[in-house]
Design a protein around this nucleic acid. Structure first.
Lengths: 205, 205
DNA sequence: TTGAACTCAGACACCGTTGTCTGCTTTACT
DNA sequence: AGTAAAGCAGACAACGGTGTCTGAGTTCAA
């Protein structure tokens, strides 16, 4: 594995090394530019990438496919981080904490990209793409629901959405400078676990 | 510096009745159109409002101020709903549930508008605007923190952000059809309370 | 009822973005 | 070293959005 970066699809073309480099720079620049402005022009992306606009068209047929490649890569990166955190090891609580800590920053980095996709693709299609990364957490959540760690009176997809929302919000807080990253980590873990956890054997109700 | 075109705050301008009507229709259409596509053109908004594009310019000097009026009105509506839920009455837990139930749908309706504002205004400015509605919850959260209902080891602003994120996510779930509104309500309340609640007198940690 | 406010219909110039194309130079591979 | 791939530079038409203007109709309010 490793240095195999395909722009959009793993294909036949044996690209030259500098082409691979350009593609990577364009993708990186696109993430930055689109994070700052979801409607960033290709000219702006090219400028930030240090290439000329025509070079983008050398690797991506049009704007839309570039954005597609950007989100594909972002999701793949997040998925890799999640997987590296071994969501299926240890107790559900431990695993959840591990996954959250490992992935929330990278997830937050790509937070702004959501706005880019919301208009082009439908919600369903967008969710289907996220599923690649989110799907890795399904066993973890279900496991926790079965052993009573997480509330079982809501669908596991609900937990997944709340989890995602909290991680995004947390990275937003850090990004806005309202909390330090060091403070955010335990707070996020606590909020997430609290949100997913089964109600404690409390009285009343 | 005072606004001459205040579509939101009824002031000096003695507008005719049909003008008020047009403004309201434009604002409504803008919410719908921008929710579907954050970059909806003024032509699209005008079409949906059943007016001609020039009519928009009769009440709003430019696109930007129209969007501003839209978000101002949205925030004001949400704030009104929150206030009507009496966030300062009863126990923090009860009040929280009341506020969440009352406001999450309307808040969700305007969820897409967030993407519209993210690029124009800075995060700080945007947060300052939200503060008008969010500020109503500050006493509630602080009260809960003081009496031990909510965790006090995080800033109250953290709780506010998590609260907002969960409500947005919940309305997204309903909007996507993954849960019914009836199911979402108690689930949201549970998730929110769990996220904010102080750790139960449990062992560990 | 009359005048003013408002709306409609359509045009206009201006601007930025997209996608394509052209030579010409530089860089990578064998 | 030679060849092809890739990049640069700068142009081009096409398109859509914005903001302004005109000159008509129509609706409200005194």
């Amino acid at each position: 594995m490793s240095t195999e970066h395909d722009a959009t699809t793993p294909e036949k073309p044996r690209r030259r090394a500098d082409a691979e480099r350009s593609i990577a720079r364009i993708l990186d620049a696109a993430v930055d530019a689109l994070s700052a402005d979801p409607e960033a022009s290709l000219a702006a992306i090219a400028r930030q990438a240090g290439v000329v606009r025509a070079t983008i068209y050398m690797h991506f047929p049009n704007r839309e496919e570039l954005l597609e490649a950007v989100t594909d890569r972002a999701i793949a990166e997040v998925a890799a981080v999640i997987q590296a955190a071994e969501p299926d090891r240890g107790s559900a609580e431990e695993a959840l904490a591990r996954v959250v800590v490992a992935s929330w920053q990278k997830l937050g980095r790509y937070h702004a990209l959501v706005a880019v996709n919301t208009k082009q693709h439908s919600h369903e299609e967008l969710h289907a793409r996220h599923a690649a990364a989110l799907g890795l957490l399904v066993p973890l959540v279900q496991r926790g629901q079965q052993d009573g760690t997480f509330r079982a009176d809501v669908p596991f997809a609900w937990h997944l959405s709340m989890l995602l929302a909290l991680m995004h919000a947390a990275s937003g807080e850090v990004n806005a400078g309202r909390v330090t990253e060091a403070d955010a980590r335990p707070a996020l873990v606590a909020s997430v676990f609290g949100a997913l956890a089964a109600a404690s054997p409390a009285p009343g109700s």
